[in-house]
Design a protein around this nucleic acid. Structure first.
Length: 142
DNA sequence: GCCAACGTTGGC
DNA sequence: GCCAACGTTGGC
């Protein structure tokens, strides 16, 4: 079981849209970056992730679960790109903003803070625990 | 809307 | 294989 973070501009794909997809989830299409793709290739069914709203909101708003391992991205014919399928698990009771993460002890090395342009990133177990705490949730998956 | 950071492309 | 040009992301 590993932890991840998925970024999306809410204008393009929001948490509410993700929730509306229900248990069938949604393909995380459109990633055209090797590092982000490699992170998706490393995912297993059952892995959990944060859902982050970039640009608008700049906050972690929900938790998602990987329900299919990486497979060809249906939005391109380019065989280099593939993606997982994720479903919404639950919203955060309190969204956790980027600003909060920046000043929160223990999150200094979080990719969200140090690697702003990476759209799919790993989250350590310690980071997962801290963010869940800030969100007002019992740590899920631990 | 600007721009810094950074990833990718392609000429050489 | 280097690096300049270019494109994109995402914070501000």
């Amino acid at each position: 079981m590993k932890f991840w973070l998925f970024k999306s501009e809410p204008d393009a794909w929001s948490w509410d849209q993700q929730v509306a997809k229900g248990a069938s989830g949604e393909e995380w299409t459109g990633v055209r970056n090797y590092q982000a793709r490699n992170n998706m290739r490393a995912m297993q069914v059952g892995d959990l992730g944060f859902f982050y709203h970039s640009n608008v909101g700049k906050e972690i708003v929900g938790i998602v679960e990987v329900i299919r391992t990486s497979a060809p991205d249906s939005t391109t014919d380019d065989p280099r790109w593939d993606c997982v399928v994720i479903k919404a698990v639950c919203p955060l009771r309190h969204p956790v903003t980027l600003d909060t993460c920046k000043v929160q002890p223990g999150l200094e090395a979080m990719a969200l803070v140090t690697n702003t342009r990476l759209s799919v990133q790993p989250v350590s177990e310690a980071e997962w625990r801290i963010v869940c705490g800030l969100a007002g949730l019992d740590p899920i998956g631990l």
